[in-house]
Design a protein around this nucleic acid. Structure first.
Ligand SMILES: [Mn+2]
Ligand SMILES: [Mn+2]
Ligand SMILES: [Mn+2]
Ligand SMILES: [Mn+2]
Lengths: 218, 218
DNA sequence: AAATATTTTTAGACTAATCTAAAAATATAT
DNA sequence: ATATATTTTTAGATTAGTCTAAAAATATTT
């Protein structure tokens, strides 16, 4: 039996290690989980005992194949529920994360497979993140961050790094959504702000915005 | 903050007291919750401190208005999710209970109100049980148990007492569902079995079946 | 290479929910 | 009314997850 808390730690480690590869520090996990390093040490010992993680004292932690499987499955559930909330229950993209954080822990294979079918097997969630299929496979989307885009080129908005309500509402109020076409007009060296052209307007976005918006060249 | 465990106890007390009226014993709760009496004592003390229950030592427990409100809200969520699972995700009525047992604890008013609307405000769940509305109101359905039905009369099947998978599958295999028309043919005094007529068949059901099937005279 | 700073782990304590075993209260039978 | 049985409560442990404070290991400066 795997507990809800273990699942959340495994998911955090997975995200911090960019897909289960590189080792993750205790402090990084503590800050991601909003807890203390001592709690993390206890938990990674447990995950290691249960064979979800490999861990050597003071050397950080990586997920085992079992651990990665668990992580990807929770991410699959999280993202499918997010699609459900937006597509069927009139949630906006800035409202779904918190609820999905809980729904992702409901344990029923039939539930999630039927939900997947009901939603017609979506491949991306409302934030542009790919949804793993039943076997855990998903394609890594080709994307760059706005901060690295080149002046003069046109891009399509395909995702966000920060999924906080604040950031998503900022995008809403500036008429930026997934699929929006953006042309980079000017990069200001002084503060790294960027002037971009949308369909009917030109706006200047700050460096923090530019680092959190994912684009694909078109 | 109310915990998942507290919610489950409150729901159990509500069901055992037939809608929060009469007092409920420690042992009854223990057996409903599949736990020990000593654990129940601890929990009802806590519920009492949090003002969800009234409790005097050795005298059993009743729910406060707050406790009843919590119970009805969980029941509303449980039954709405059951409808969702059957109507949208191809679950059968014997598969929904376990999953709904978990989904009922997801805390989001928007989620449940939008789900209610998405399902077009259903008034009964897949087992014939009424679904409380947002304010907690629901009508008590007029119904009798098959064991008390009169020979010669015709009834409509409107609910079940036992919602176990075993019983529901038994009904499926005998072509009895909500809405099925049943005519009582004979009551056997020897073992209290009952011969009933369905649309195209006559079957004999045992006393245990007769005590768990709810009917409405037509 | 030693001193200092940072990170990580340990030790010990706390809360929620559970358990077993024993004590206390209540109910039932003689 | 007394003895017996049943129910309920208490006392003391246990487990999961968390915390603070101190110790140990590792990393960074000088
Ligand atoms: Mn979560
Ligand atoms: Mn998402
Ligand atoms: Mn439950
Ligand atoms: Mn039901």
């Amino acid at each position: 039996m795997i507990t809800l808390t273990e699942e959340n730690y495994i998911k955090a480690i997975y995200h911090l290690s960019s897909n289960g590869e590189k080792t993750v520090n205790t402090n990084a996990i503590a800050s991601a989980m909003q807890t203390k390093a001592s709690s993390v040490t206890d938990m990674i010992k447990k995950l290691s005992e249960k064979n979800y993680a490999d861990y050597k004292k003071y050397q950080g932690v990586t997920l085992t194949d079992d651990g990665k499987r668990v992580a990807v499955n929770i991410i699959r559930k999280h993202r499918l529920w997010e699609v459900f909330l937006v597509e069927k229950l009139n949630f906006s993209w800035d409202e779904v994360h918190e609820v999905a954080e809980h729904l992702e822990h409901i344990k029923s294979d039939k539930l999630i497979d039927e939900l997947d079918a009901f939603l017609e097997f979506p491949t991306y969630d409302p934030h542009g993140d790919p949804i793993p299929d039943k076997e855990g496979n998903f394609k890594h989307i080709e994307k760059i961050v706005l901060a690295k885009a080149e002046v003069g080129s046109a891009y399509k908005c395909v995702g966000v790094d920060d999924t906080s309500s604040k950031f998503l509402k900022y995008l809403d109020s500036n008429h930026i959504a997934l699929g929006t076409i953006i042309t980079v007009k000017h990069k200001e060296p002084f503060d790294n702000s960027i002037k971009i052209a949308l369909e009917n307007s030109e706006i200047v976005v700050s460096q923090s915005v530019a680092k959190n918006l994912y684009l694909k060249k078109i």
